[in-house]
Nucleic acid binder design. Structure first.
Lengths: 103, 103
DNA sequence: AATCTATATTAATTTATTATAATATTTATA
DNA sequence: TATAAATATTATAATAAATTAATATAGATT
């Protein structure tokens, strides 16, 4: 079951560093240090952003030694991104047309 | 062609009043006064939010007398919402093929 | 145990965003 | 043309969010 409070996800993603983190984590899971490097942020700031991302339910982490390896929870992100879908999903026919259009 | 700077759309939608406006406009186009009523905002605040939405490319308006009728640009919103799709679309080609085959 | 490494937390400062109040603009109408 | 209605704009005050700097913790290494 999905439990992300969807509206607030936009607030979480509103920060460019956080949306970049999500993007990077979409490629592969990463440690705090790796994200810090990739984004050119301070350790503290990186950590604070990761806390917000974790609390929002969009990412998770596991421990490995004294590292933390963060990962994107894709299904949660996907649920958030489909929040407005009812506005254009009048049915599967439409989906099919769209797939064709986006060729 | 779509021209929304996608990342910043999350910032636009981060404000709850604006995401509600988008939602309401998804149902049907509305005047400033109607949105003002529906959201219980002041005239000024409503107008300022609509300016941000318009500048982001997510909504448009047309004039009708001294009214302005705002409308959601669904395709733009949709493009923004599909920003992360590549993260889970590995099977999309396959889905598309199936839809075509089952015609 | 002492120390080092990776990360977290807290407090203070800076910066950005939102709401409010006042005024301006545009169009309609008497 | 004077006034009213709908909306926009601008300045300012209030609030929230991000960054920085300092300190703390947890696990690893000596």
């Amino acid at each position: 079951m999905l439990t992300v409070p969807v509206i607030s996800v936009f607030k979480v993603l509103a920060d460019e560093n956080r949306s970049k983190m999500v993007w990077l984590l979409g490629e592969k899971e990463q440690t705090v240090g790796e994200l810090e490097q990739a984004l050119g942020l301070s350790q503290s700031s990186t950590s604070q952003h990761l806390k917000i991302l974790t609390q929002s339910g969009l990412v998770s982490f596991r421990k490995y030694g004294n590292f933390r390896i963060y990962a994107l929870k894709k299904e949660e992100l996907r649920a958030a991104m489909s929040f407005f879908d009812s506005l254009w999903d009048k049915g599967l026919d439409r989906l099919k047309q769209n797939l064709e259009k986006n060729e």
